[in-house]
Design a protein around this nucleic acid. Structure first.
Lengths: 201, 201
DNA sequence: GTCTATATAAAGATAGAC
DNA sequence: GTCTATCTTTATATAGAC
């Protein structure tokens, strides 16, 4: 299972991609349990069975590890968002985003929880990830038209944040991915579906 | 403004309640912005304009500060939960909890976000707050009957976690408390209202 | 690629003066 | 009630041997 380091045609990086992967996997597990600020390089190294210096061979700083951990989720989010925005019609865009987002969340529960709940991750992204604030602007827009009124905006916010948190909850580990995905999608659609409230305004 | 320390009939604590309050307020502000692990005693002291040692006069450990910050929210949650459980009928119980919970969340946005998002807070509570795991069991139960099927459980989880996160979002700071409360309640009700899925798509 | 050893800073926490 | 000063531990990070 070891030493496929730098085969020609494989990973284009100088440092072996496999070494980085092992750090990233160990880091994600620790981050998910203790949070980024609650995880030291020592803890990551211990989880890998190596020393801190070995970890620093692969990444120069802790921030770089955070970025590397979170990068794949953001890349997928970028694609899902762009695809949704390309749809014709507001409700088609919202539905397209929701569908892709739910699939991403179920596939990467720990990662998305980290992305949405960990203030340290969000701070790091705002500083080092150029497109992040873009996402924060565009996601509400793809889910609800700006002129649809605050009720729709609030419902959309409840939907995406609730979906992430519910997917990450230990309560639903017994459900299959497909089942969970179906229920989350259902909940999301209920929130996004425009319905005039009978009693108000 | 100062030195009302230990008036007879006032706070029953030896250390002045006012001094504790100032620590708690400063700590909450820092915790909300940087997370518990990302906040040092030094940062709290700086925010108060005093030294670390002055903070340690009021609280023996950082954990004690965390508990004190979070205590009022948990006390309110305890009452809301007990009142809801006392209602007759599952749907009355769910609605009662949702109503109280939304009001609590809107009134204490920072605090509830901390309670739901910060892994360090949750770990501290699981260790030092006897009733916390009780809450974690009872809240899902008051919102959805255990035999109602996983779809209802998931919807309920989306509702409460989404409500907390949406209320804490900077997106809605322009809304009045009453407006936000109304929209959150509306979103929550949409999720809790039992509806057979009519086989959409 | 991993190690030992170390530099430097900051963390939580305490002692004792005022 | 707040201060200065200090202790101890741990944090991020680097240098250089193997």
């Amino acid at each position: 299972m070891t030493s496929v380091t730098s085969e020609p045609g494989a990973a284009p990086t100088r440092r072996s991609a496999d070494g980085r992967r092992r750090v990233i996997d160990a880091a994600l597990a620790q981050f998910a349990e203790y949070g980024v600020e609650g995880t030291s390089l020592q803890m990551i190294a211990d989880a890998m069975g190596v020393t801190k210096a070995a970890v620093y061979y692969h990444f120069k700083t802790k921030d770089e590890i955070v970025l590397a951990v979170v990068r794949p989720a953001l890349e997928q989010l970028r694609v899902i968002l762009a695809d949704a925005e390309a749809q014709r019609g507001q409700s088609a865009r919202a539905r397209a985003f929701l569908t892709g987002f739910v699939r991403l969340v179920v596939g990467e529960r720990e990662l998305l929880t980290l992305l949405y709940d960990d203030v340290a991750v969000i701070r790091t992204l705002r500083v080092h990830w150029p497109d992040f604030e873009d996402f924060e602007r565009r996601i509400p827009l793809v889910l609800a038209a700006p002129d649809a009124g605050p009720g729709h905006q609030v419902a959309a916010a409840v939907a995406i944040t609730g979906i992430v948190a519910a997917a990450g909850s230990p309560q639903f580990t017994t459900l299959s991915d497909d089942e969970l995905e179906g229920h989350l999608l259902d909940a999301g659609l209920r929130l996004l579906t425009a319905r005039r409230r009978p009693g108000r305004h």
